[in-house]
Design a protein around this nucleic acid. Structure first.
Length: 254
DNA sequence: ATGTCACCTGGTAGGTGA
């Protein structure tokens, strides 16, 4: 079984790339972030024609998430229950016995800002909900754009980024609190090439210079961890014409 | 190099967010 996450930075722009990538890699589950589409604009017919099931949760202009799967998705949840939020950031479903949660974590903009405070509150709510989801669904995968670089080795220039957004101690503590629920960073279960990133700024020729951050993650529960056989970042789509600024992350289960 | 990309409003550019 293969699960993947990809921040596509506008599904309206990236739909052809998403369809091509799915056709090539045949994931069982793919979660998308930053679809930037209201629900009435979601291209479900295109996915259906290509043989994929889809559920989605969007809004105007910003955010928006979707979950694509080959087999049926059950018990679909949109956003964090009991956490009032106008921003469409979460979609969860059970596919082939695995509880898959796709999330677009708040960016946070700048430490000390209102958006940073929102990010912290959102992370608190997410953690408590994921705790309950894990109790109900031992086979659980939490994946998406976390907007957190967990360690200095996930940052191309940790000195320059020290204390900056995605790298603050508060955000890293939140990441560790999620891990503390009994989750594992699937990417770090394996030896990986140094300077592995999942996001490169559009500016400054960052991709060409490999100046990026690893902020897209796949966390797996203990029962899933025993099944994980591989996890990698697929840089290939970042080389496309008109690429997303993020690359997909993929985990393979036995 | 505050250097790009995507979206919006409302206009043939400027603002916001990432």
């Amino acid at each position: 079984m293969k699960l993947a996450t990809w921040n596509v930075n506008s599904l309206a722009v990236r739909l052809p790339q998403v369809l091509a990538w799915m056709s090539e890699h045949r994931p069982d589950v793919l979660v998308l972030q930053e679809t930037k589409l209201t629900d009435d604009k979601f291209p479900h017919a295109e996915f259906d024609a290509a043989g994929w099931r889809a559920c989605w949760h969007g809004q105007k202009t910003y955010n928006g998430v979707a979950l694509l799967s080959r087999s049926a998705a059950a018990d679909v949840v949109r956003n964090i229950p009991a956490h009032g939020d106008e921003q469409a950031r979460v979609i969860a479903a059970t596919v082939d016995g695995v509880r898959a949660i796709g999330a677009y974590f708040p960016n946070g903009q700048e430490p000390g800002s209102d958006k940073f405070a929102y990010k912290m509150r959102w992370l608190d709510a997410l953690r408590e909900w994921v705790r309950a989801e894990m109790a109900a669904h031992p086979q659980l995968v939490l994946m998406g754009d976390f907007n957190i670089a967990p360690e200095d080795r996930d940052v191309y220039d940790p000195v320059a980024w020290a204390g900056q957004i995605h790298c603050t101690p508060e955000e890293r503590a939140q990441f560790q609190a999620l891990v503390g629920l009994g989750l594992h960073d699937a990417f770090r279960l394996f030896e990986q090439p140094p300077k592995s990133w999942s996001w490169w700024d559009y500016r400054n020729l960052a991709f060409r210079k490999n100046q990026g951050l690893r902020i897209d993650h796949i966390l797996v529960s203990d029962p899933v961890r025993t099944r994980v056989t591989a996890c990698s970042i697929d840089k290939a789509p970042r080389k496309n014409e008109r690429p997303s600024d993020h690359a997909p992350v993929v985990v393979t289960l036995s």
